[in-house]
Amino acid sequence: MNGSAPTAPRFEAEALADMAGLAARHPSIFRVNWPRRALTVAIVAVLAGLFISGFWALGFSFARIAGGLGKLVEFAGFMLPPSPGSYATFLTYLMALAQTLAIAFLGTLTAAILAFPFGFLAAKNVIPNVFLHFSLRRGLDVVRGVDVLIWALIWINVVGLGPFAGILAVATSNFGEFGKLFSEAIEAMDKKAVEGVASTGGGKLHQVRFGLLPQVFPVIVSQVLYYFESNTRSATIIGVVGAGGVGLHLYEQIRMLEWQHVSFLVLMILLTVAVIDFVSGRLRFAIIGNAKIVA
């Protein structure tokens, strides 16, 4: 309490005046790490160089961007107010939206049911065969690597145009995802519950039913619900290649430059996705609480 507490500006001035001393006392803070800095600069330069030359390589030009933006503004003007034109068209769109939901729902469910046994087969702790494990996992990877739109094109060859091909496409592409996720969930489970059931004299089936299933089932259900949400989004566009749902109408209306219809359809999709997200989020929360779903 000597009454001469230094004020902030004085501290600053003192510190600045003693910069050389500070640097001498704390060399590790003032030393510049040149190799590290050079590496950072080099990475940023490569990324930025690729970025800028990429625009040039893909044919971006100011004239094209400006012209396109002008057109976009024009389109946005045409989009207002969103309207389906007539009540009959509205009903058609509503039916197409129902089709989209059906594609997402049945596709997810079929994939889940088919992938469930595969999850066990591809799990290291159920079948400890390295060769089988590796080949199953790579097979699932290939299925996953093919986009849902490509699967739709392939299934159209089998069952013809329409939502059924869409269901099969969503089911196939999700089968690859689920097989991987389920087997990981099964690999992550706790062995103790199964051993407990075995110690009371439970058979193999009892062990699976009372030891394994209660652990795995909630995780799997929540993953399936999560994918249902994301499939609702992808099912809206699967119609672009002719596999049913609202995508076909969206594609046609954009091609015919019916912007009021387009904005109406987009609004319908946004609303549906929001509702599905809400419902499935509630269900997921009821099943496993706030736990993390995607590993």
Binding site: R64, I237, L250
Partner: peptide, 27 residues
């Protein structure tokens, strides 16, 4: 939310109408 809910193919369709065919609308 709007940007991630509308599928990218839909944006691509609209941008193809505005910017013309090619990689520009895709990017």
């Amino acid at each position: 939310e709007f940007c991630r809910t509308v599928p990218e193919i839909v944006f691509a369709l609209i941008f193809v109408a505005a910017f013309g065919l090619g990689p520009v609308p895709g990017v």
